[in-house]
Amino acid sequence: MKRLHLISLTTLLFILTSCGDKQNQKEKIKVAEDVPKLKLSLAQWSLHKEIETGQLDPFDFPRVAKELGFDAVEWVNQIYKKEMDSLGFDAVIKRWKEESEKYGIKNVLIMVDHAGDLSHSDKDKRDEAVEMHKKYVDAAEYLGCHAIRVNTFGTYNAEAWVEATYDGLKRLSEYAKTKNINVLAENHGWFSSDPRLLIPLIESIGLDNCGTLADFGNWCIKRKTDENWGECAEEYPDKYEGFERLMTKAQAVSAKAYEFDKNGNETTLDFEKFSHIIKNSGYQGYISVEYENETLSEREGILATKNLLLKHFN
Rank of each mutant, 00 (worst) to 15 (best):
A72K: 05
N157M: 06
S275E: 06
S46G: 15
L207C: 12
D60F: 05
A164P: 07
L87I: 05
R196N: 14
S8P: 06
F260M: 03
W161H: 03
E203D: 15
G69N: 09
M247S: 00
L40C: 04
Y286F: 13
M247D: 02
K306S: 00
K22W: 15
Y291N: 08
H133Q: 11
S86Y: 00
A252D: 13
Y156L: 13
K224E: 15
S297N: 10
D124L: 13
T155G: 09
V253Y: 03
E101S: 14
I7F: 13
T268C: 10
K66T: 07
D261S: 07
T178C: 08
P237L: 04
P195T: 09
L16T: 14
C220R: 01
I105M: 15
V162C: 09
N151M: 15
V183C: 06
S18M: 13
D226S: 12
M247F: 04
I302G: 00
K135Y: 08
E241V: 15
S254W: 03
E292R: 01
L12N: 02
C210H: 01
H133T: 05
S297T: 15
M247T: 03
L213E: 14
A252E: 11
F89S: 06
I7T: 11
L246K: 01
L310K: 14
I15R: 06
T212A: 11
L246Q: 02
G104W: 06
W96R: 02
N77W: 06
I181Q: 00
E231F: 04
G69I: 05
I287M: 11
E99C: 07
D124H: 11
K49T: 14
I287W: 06
N182H: 14
K26P: 01
F274L: 05
F14S: 15
V162Q: 10
T267N: 08
K28M: 12
D85G: 07
T152H: 03
P36Q: 03
K26Q: 13
A158R: 14
D90P: 02
A176N: 03
D60H: 10
I278P: 01
N77G: 07
F70A: 05
A233T: 04
H48R: 14
L68A: 09
E128G: 10
K134T: 04
A304Y: 07
K170N: 06
I51A: 05
N293D: 15
L207N: 04
L198R: 04
E131S: 09
Y80T: 08
F70S: 03
T17C: 13
E50Y: 13
E98R: 11
D127H: 13
G69V: 04
W161F: 05
S18V: 12
G189N: 08
E186M: 08
Y103W: 15
D194C: 10
T17L: 14
S193D: 06
V73C: 02
G301S: 10
T225N: 14
K28Q: 15
W229R: 08
Y258Q: 03
K49G: 07
L109A: 15
H276V: 11
D138K: 07
D124W: 08
